[in-house]
């Protein structure tokens, strides 16, 4: 088991192997994303029963919750890639970490926008300083900081290493930020209607789970596509990239 993981780690550490393998994996991942998201969304939009409190507006949840979960997960993944960059100096991890940030940021943005749109019929205002929305906003700011730092440094390797330090510091801070925002929220306003009711009917929960898994597949697809571009750019002087480009 451990030997297999170690072998995979070294194989995927090579940009060429990564490019070839992900090229073969991509159709399957796309199929997984489509086969999970489309049924999940159709079920959630058309077949799940309306919520007895919120009516039909709760159907925004089928994007909002997966986007929130991805935005968090992507940051943690970026920090893990950062550890690999700093400890083992793996070039592939640099490219993956660089590709994660814009995708994670766009999911955080999506979560905020859908949250605001959901808030209008639920709370009567577009924005409420609700604990979850506020910590998502700060997560988006963290992503923006990481992206700004990455763009400001010209040398690709030092950009990757500086970004790795920042994303690890950010990942250590995320739980602290989350708990302080929650504490701040309970201090400043009485408990508001939470967006997702804790006890959800099964007919609502299953499409949500489909969407969450589907979004993870979508994330894998987006990340692989972005990383493959990064490989072409960084490895354009190598022979295999030249042959690859010349052959088609």
């Amino acid at each position: 088991m451990f030997a297999t993981i170690k072998r995979l780690y070294h194989q995927f550490g090579s940009p060429r192997y990564f490019y070839d393998m992900t090229g073969k994996m991509l159709p399957w991942l796309i199929a997984g994303a489509v086969l999970l998201i489309i049924p999940g969304i159709v079920w959630g939009l058309a077949f799940a029963p309306p919520d007895y409190l919120q009516g039909n507006s709760y159907r925004i949840m089928y994007i909002h919750v997966p986007a929130a979960s991805l935005a968090m997960g992507a940051y943690v993944m970026m920090a893990v890639a950062g550890v690999v960059v700093l400890v083992w100096r793996m070039k592939m991890a640099e490219m993956v970490a660089r590709s994660i940030a814009p995708i994670g940021a766009s999911f955080a943005f999506l979560c905020l926008i859908t949250g605001a749109i959901w808030g209008k019929p639920t709370w009567g205002t577009w924005w409420v300083w609700d604990a979850r929305l506020t910590s998502m906003l700060i997560l988006l700011f963290l992503y923006i900081g990481v992206m700004a730092l990455n763009m400001a440094i010209e040398n690709a390797q030092s950009a990757a290493r500086a970004t790795a330090v920042l994303s690890i510091v950010g990942a250590v801070n995320i739980p602290i930020i989350k708990y302080s925002v929650e504490w701040w929220n309970t201090l400043h306003q009485p408990a508001s209607i939470s967006m997702t009711s804790s006890s959800m009917a099964t007919e609502m929960l299953i499409p949500l789970l489909l969407c969450i898994f589907g979004f993870y597949f979508l994330f894998a697809v987006l990340l692989i596509m972005a990383t493959r571009c990064e490989i072409l750019q960084r490895e354009q002087r190598s022979n295999w990239v030249r042959q690859l480009v010349e052959n088609n």
Binding site: I41, N56, S57, I60, I63, S106, I117, P121, L218
Partner: peptide
């Protein structure tokens, strides 16, 4: 969507745009 059509479809439309981008 009850009375919430504009909200639900706006949310889904924006999501589609972001993912397509």
């Amino acid at each position: 969507m009850g009375k919430h059509g504009a909200y639900v479809w706006a949310a889904y439309g924006i999501s589609l745009l972001v993912i397509a981008a």
